[in-house]
Write a protein that binds this DNA or RNA. Structure first.
Lengths: 360, 360
DNA sequence: TTTTGAAATGAAAGCGCTTTCCCAATACCA
DNA sequence: TGGTATTGGGAAAGCGCTTTCATTTCAAAA
């Protein structure tokens, strides 16, 4: 007979609930078994208030024995917070991005957070949808990895419930309102140019990212122009080509550099290893062998740089660390309760010498 | 004056709640504004029971106007279900895996589910931890992508609350208890061997996956041995080397094949594009050029196969589709309410001819 | 006309936590 | 010693949904 009149006169359901359903152990079960209130159990779990050693021990023992896991929905409902952090990326199979994600994952996991990776395919509507979904899930924070984001979008994001951090890419209005973790594109390219210069190259071509890509594309171009100027090296406009970071565009840019110049550069610097790979292939198909006839340098130091023959000289960007720092930045934002402080964190790069560049 | 005595005599909080906190619009607000009960609103949202057209319209209008999004915690708490599906992988930056994830994402997103990608680093404890966390989050289903899983683990998984599907890899006990979506490793290798045979090769070396990898490693080896036998081709044991799918191991295996054989094979088939790339590099360092002195064939058809010079002949495995099918499989399991039916789904492969294999 | 049944709606319980509010017990101070 | 902080712990409200159950309405069957 379960129809005991209790409380406001409603029958208590037995622990089984509606029959057949798998009911998991709840905080009430623990409280009952440890002969304390649910408040105490909650306090023990969260360390939110002092509980005597005696009770703490008793509660922990019961929790342990029953493998009790707090229901994250109930907890979320009560606190209005989840332990999820969202990561929005355009393309998960881009090695640069997946390495960044690994870094994010690494620190999130340590902090007991779970990472939700969402792919936008570079599609604004999808991105919007994902942000909304993350808001629904009450994500505690969001990281945008390698996403091109414009001013409007940023304003809109700042209205969301969670703090946001950008990584691998900075906002396209040039202003840093959202906290950002990034490598120094200008100086990284400068160092690459200096490396080529030190290797004896004076005529240097440049395969750039897209013109509408403020962060990676434009900054790197800026780095190229200023450092060439500093070294007092001429740069015919036909030495500079705009690609889109793809292998095919690298190939195509190489072809155009060849076609549009009577005097070829002795070295070509590409803005990604992938475009560099395309450039190597393009050079080969033009009868130029690398590095004998032409030196080619990449950027990123993805695994591909090592796999190619000749292995690519490149600039190493520590994307894993970039991801880690981004996550750390996000956590400190979450702790401080601020949505954005406009902080900008740089991560160091390093020129890697391999065989695609020769001394002349 | 908010201290109206209502219900059991407790004051109603104003919508603002504790001051300063951002309160979002709830189902109650909608109900009030549309002059219906929350039950009706819920029914409209979920289409769970007939609601008159008149009310439906009214409710939808109010929902729309207020941009109401049901709180997923409250919903989860009430239904004990989330719209999250978990994906556990060993390494997110493995191109094969990230492509599979893209496929999963693609169908999950269409169904209104969010994918949570978790990385285990191939670490059993971490994997366990992730499964528990997914259980906590009440994931509706889980996909294991490219994970080596043994019998015990499978038994344990079948005890979890959600259905599980394996993709890209099958369980190491050879029995299919968990639903699995995979390519036909044996026949894919057979087709590669036949391709090499057709190209005139008779002495064929094999760079295999790890010996302890039942699905990809052992199956492919089996495919190699049986198809070589069918073609009545000899295979000295020193033609077969075990790698670990890495570039370096491909290089090393190539070196050993060279050192341990007086008569070299004319072609080497590697079990992944990455190992094939290593093999090409290893061959080069031994003074053998590909494909003039030695043909090398890969497996997977990752982008790398196209980027290499010479571009790799390989076997294309449609990992994106594999991911899609896995997700479809999971959804059908979720709908039927079963945890596993032991269904095995194959995905078709295709030999891709490029330049690393020459006709002799 | 009365009875039955189906359909539409609302009231409110209940999901499993956290946290406020309160009380009791103990420690501290003059 | 009395009075005041301080501390530990319990009762129960409340988070925002879903769903059961009861009620009302209305058409069809008797």
């Amino acid at each position: 007979m379960y129809n005991l009149e209790v409380g406001k006169g409603f029958p208590i359901l037995s622990k089984k609930g509606r029959e057949g359903e798998h009911m998991s152990v709840t905080i009430d079960d623990i409280a009952k078994e440890a002969r304390v209130s649910t408040a105490t159990v909650s306090r023990v779990i969260n360390g939110s208030k002092a509980v005597s050693p005696e009770l703490t021990r008793r509660v922990l023992e019961v929790i342990e024995r029953n493998r009790f896991k707090p229901n994250s929905f109930a907890r979320g409902l009560a606190t209005d917070k989840s332990s999820i952090i969202g990561v929005i990326v355009a393309d998960i199979s881009n090695p640069v991005i997946s390495t960044t994600i690994k870094g994010i994952n690494h620190v999130a996991q340590q902090k007991g957070y779970t990472v939700m990776v969402c792919e936008s395919d570079g599609n604004g509507d999808k991105e919007q949808m994902l942000l909304e979904r993350l808001e629904e899930q009450k994500a505690s924070g969001v990281i945008l990895a390698g996403m091109n984001v414009d001013h409007n979008r940023i304003q809109q994001m700042l209205r969301m419930d969670f703090p946001i951090v950008m990584v691998t890419q900075q906002s396209s209005d040039g202003k840093i309102t959202i906290n950002t973790v990034i490598h120094d594109n200008i100086n990284a390219i400068r160092d690459a140019v200096v490396f080529l210069h030190t290797s004896g190259h004076r005529r240097i071509g440049f395969i750039c990212g897209p013109e509408n890509d403020y962060s990676s594309g434009i900054k790197r171009l800026e780095g190229f122009r200023t450092s060439m100027e500093e070294l007092q090296l001429e740069v015919p406009e036909s030495y500079i080509m705009f690609g889109d970071f793809s292998y095919e565009s690298g190939r195509e840019c190489m072809r155009r550099i060849f076609e549009e110049n009577a005097i070829m550069p002795t070295a070509v610097l590409a803005c990604s290893d992938l475009m560099a790979a395309g450039a190597v292939s393009g050079a080969a198909s033009l009868g130029l062998s690398v590095p004998q006839d032409l030196s080619i340098m990449g950027f990123d130091d993805t695994d591909l740089a090592r796999y190619l023959n000749p292995a690519l000289s490149t600039v190493r960007i520590p994307y894993f660390e970039e991801g880690e720092k981004a996550a750390e930045e996000l956590f400190s934002l979450m702790e401080s309760g601020e949505k954005a402080t406009g902080k900008l964190v740089y991560v160091p790069h390093k020129v890697i010498r391999r065989f695609s560049v020769r001394k002349i």
